[in-house]
Simulated scan of single mutants.
Amino acid sequence: MDSSGDSSRESTRERILRKAAELFAERGFHGTSVARIGEAAEVQRGALYYHIGSKENLLYDLSKRHVEEALVRGRAVVASDLPPVEKMRRLAFEHLSAVAARRAEVTVVMREMHALTGDRAERLRALRDEHQSLFKTVLQEGVDLGVFREADSVSVLGILGALNWTYVWFDPARGLGVEALAERLTDMILHGQLTAEAASTEIDSGKPVERVIA
């Protein structure tokens, strides 16, 4: 098979995905026609369907790619030897990095996932549940070490809610950068999660909690 042809098709598909993400983020999934996507990507209708299959499949591919990439980065953080507080900071950093680099895709995942149906919806929900479980795992590690208070669903969803909402307002070109915002948000989020002993140790020593428990 002609490798140049493969490269060309991949390039076309990536362009379609990028333009579709921009349009879905701006107009919504239901407000974006296949014809408009083809026009934006400069692809004829027949070729467009060849590359995407259907508009819903395009939404699924966009969402799946984003969540799978988040899972790869998140699993690496959870599997590391970092202490729980630092792991949570790294998870926050990875999340905010995705928002900064691919705001349109993140917007689509957050706002348009409900448009998926059937098996696609179930498969993506399973991926998002697995991503959510990474945060629960880190919280549980902290609970086991006596650093965090709880690792229940309220704590997990509260943390994810704070991070997920940043796609609406976070702009790394204005104000805080990704690293600084990840640090600040993690400190705000985890302040109420620290046990009294861990919080007291941090205040008395002036050292980050992760160094105290390492």
Rank of each mutant, 00 (worst) to 15 (best):
F148Q: 07
F93T: 07
R174W: 06
T137R: 15
E183F: 04
F93S: 10
G177E: 09
R149A: 10
R75L: 07
A98G: 08
Q44E: 14
Y50A: 12
G118S: 14
L71K: 06
V77Y: 04
T12K: 15
Q140M: 08
T195K: 09
V72R: 14
D171Y: 07
M110Y: 11
L157Y: 09
S3C: 02
M110L: 12
K64P: 01
M188A: 14
H30W: 09
H114G: 02
E112I: 02
L185I: 11
V154S: 11
F29C: 02
L59C: 03
R211D: 13
M188F: 13
V85H: 05
A199G: 04
L116Y: 06
V72S: 11
R13F: 12
E122F: 01
L185N: 02
T32D: 06
R27L: 08
E150G: 00
L145H: 10
G38V: 07
S3D: 12
A92W: 01
D171A: 12
R90E: 15
L181T: 11
N164C: 03
F93C: 04
S3Y: 12
L124R: 06
V72I: 13
V72C: 02
L157W: 05
T12Q: 15
G161V: 03
R211H: 11
A41I: 00
W169K: 12
W165R: 13
A121L: 15
E141M: 05
H66F: 12
L23G: 02
N57M: 09
G28T: 01
A41Q: 00
R18M: 07
Y167M: 06
T201P: 00
V85I: 07
G5S: 14
D6N: 13
L176M: 15
F170E: 08
G146P: 07
M113P: 00
Y167A: 09
E183L: 09
L62M: 05
H114M: 04
Q132V: 02
L185G: 01
I189L: 15
S7G: 07
G28W: 03
G74I: 03
E86G: 00
E150W: 09
S63C: 15
V143E: 03
A79N: 13
M188R: 12
D144T: 12
D129M: 12
D152L: 07
R120D: 11
L82F: 10
D171L: 11
I52F: 08
I159R: 01
D144C: 06
E68K: 12
Q140N: 09
A151W: 01
G46W: 02
Q193M: 13
